[in-house]
Nucleic acid binder design. Structure first.
Lengths: 149, 149
DNA sequence: CATGTTCGTTAGCATAACTCATTACCTTTT
DNA sequence: AAAAGGTAATGAGTTATGCTAACGAACATG
């Protein structure tokens, strides 16, 4: 909580936020290049990731979650369906809406992708010493929480 | 160091790497939307960031650092020059090459951009409790190191 | 039942990356 | 010294991925 910290740590907070922002941006840029399937765009991958978390969602929900406009999501979902990575079904209560579900094939691909990026990141992390890695390990769950606030 | 950790923490390491990857990807996607200047693409911003770190560089060097093809960098540099954010000069030793330097205007804009993203991230971080934030603060410098390994 | 709203989609456009080809310059070889 | 090959930047054209505007179908409300 930055708004009501004791005076002494204000500067540290600013430095930490700055370091964090910088590190996140750079790491993400490099992680992006570790795609398992070159034929899938980052957003398409991201949609699959969201589906893996939520189980299923309507195109509109997906568009909001990915910060993308609905027409873009239409095309993305169509692309994913054409590749056999998602299924489209009719919504139970509302016939305007559709429900997007991921296929087993998508699950497998996503797992492979996670495995590859994790391997790359772990390789990078081997450049840290024991103490440094301990700090990262402690912060990892917090960062995950931070990302979904 | 993941390769030679005691058996007990292997599982924790994998989980941490996984959480870290996921958090970095999501945070970066949201940070990207916090652009200070909508007329500059993420890569163009990134080039300015690189220049701020290195002082100056040739288009070719920039292309390699940004993982972009040389023709793309030509266009990016031209755009930045047109906006008065970089200067192009002749290379001292090699007349094929050019040297790209950032202007004072770029420095100011970059600082403004950092400030905005930091503010956004800090706002987000206010959703953490004291203990969680302490872990992030401890890990931040390590993450920065990790990103440039 | 009439009107307005929401959802997904279609069509058309803008941007920013890529590949391939070209020009200018350096380096090495003969 | 001249020729051959390599490297830097760039130009032209293509592809990918997002956007906005406009639309039809299904719901919700007066």
């Amino acid at each position: 909580m930055l708004t009501n910290m004791p005076e002494l740590s204000r500067g540290d907070d600013a430095a930490a936020v700055n370091a964090l922002r910088s590190a996140v941006m750079r790491l993400s840029r490099r992680l992006k290049h570790q795609r398992v399937d070159e034929s899938l765009s980052p957003t398409e991958m991201s949609v699959l990731g969201t589906l893996a978390r939520c189980g299923h969602a309507t195109p509109g929900e997906l568009a909001r979650k990915e910060h993308v406009q609905p027409p873009s999501m239409t095309r993305i979902v169509a692309m994913l369906e054409a590749k056999g990575l998602v299924r489209l079904e009719a919504h139970a209560d509302d016939r305007r809406q559709k429900v997007v579900t991921q296929t087993e094939q998508a699950e497998a691909m996503l797992e492979e992708s996670r495995r590859k990026r994790n391997a790359w990141l772990a390789e990078l992390a081997s450049g840290l010493d024991e103490d440094e890695w301990a700090k990262v390990r402690a912060a990892a769950p917090v960062l995950e929480k931070l990302a979904q606030l």
